[in-house]
Simulated assay, not measured.
Amino acid sequence: MAYVSFHGTFLEEDPMPTLEKLRNLRILNLEENALSGKKMVCSAQGFPKHDSLSLEKLYDLEEWEVDEGAMFALRHLEISFCKKLEMLPEGFRFIATL
């Protein structure tokens, strides 16, 4: 099982365009200031085997876009203490496994 976790990395650039290309990635945790940018984008066909996503304490995250066809195998989603994130991505309505 492929697993990636970022903790306190303060990434300024959105890591999703790179991470979504990891074809066997199943679990991704972005925790405690892993991201200092304001926006994340998950592209169509990205994260094909992604099963679990955790976003925790991403204090600067304001906007998250998920294109139709992205993360279509996602079964577990946890979002906590992302206080500036005002809404879930519209693209989640296309994920039948969630």
Rank of each mutant, 00 (worst) to 15 (best):
M87D: 12
E63A: 15
H76G: 11
L88M: 11
A70H: 02
L55I: 09
F94E: 09
S52V: 02
W64A: 02
K57G: 06
C82F: 00
F94Q: 10
L58D: 09
E68S: 14
L61Q: 02
E65I: 14
P89V: 04
H76I: 11
H76Q: 11
F94P: 00
R93Q: 15
G46N: 01
E86S: 15
P89Q: 03
G69Q: 07
F94R: 10
W64H: 02
L74C: 05
L88I: 06
I79G: 12
K84D: 05
K84I: 03
L74P: 05
D67Y: 08
L55P: 07
S52Y: 15
K83L: 10
Y59M: 14
A70L: 02
D67N: 11
V66I: 12
L85Y: 01
K84W: 02
E86G: 10
W64M: 13
E65F: 08
L55H: 02
G46Y: 00
I79E: 06
E90W: 03
L61H: 01
K57T: 09
K83Q: 14
M71N: 00
E63K: 14
L58H: 07
H76Y: 14
S80Q: 15
D51G: 00
E63F: 06
P89H: 03
F47N: 04
E65C: 03
K49A: 09
D51F: 15
H76S: 13
K49Y: 02
K83H: 15
F72L: 13
E86K: 15
L74N: 09
H50D: 00
K57S: 11
K84M: 09
L77D: 01
R93W: 07
R75L: 06
A70Y: 01
L85F: 02
L88N: 04
R93T: 13
E78C: 11
F47V: 08
W64T: 01
K84Y: 01
L55V: 04
Y59T: 10
S80R: 09
L61A: 03
L58W: 03
K49H: 08
M87W: 04
E62G: 07
D60R: 12
C82D: 03
L58C: 11
A73K: 08
G91Y: 00
F92E: 05
F81W: 12
I79S: 08
F92N: 04
K83G: 09
E78M: 12
G69A: 06
S54M: 14
L88E: 01
D67K: 11
R93N: 13
V66P: 07
H50R: 10
K83Y: 10
G91E: 01
D51C: 07
G69V: 05
I79C: 08
D67L: 12
E86H: 15
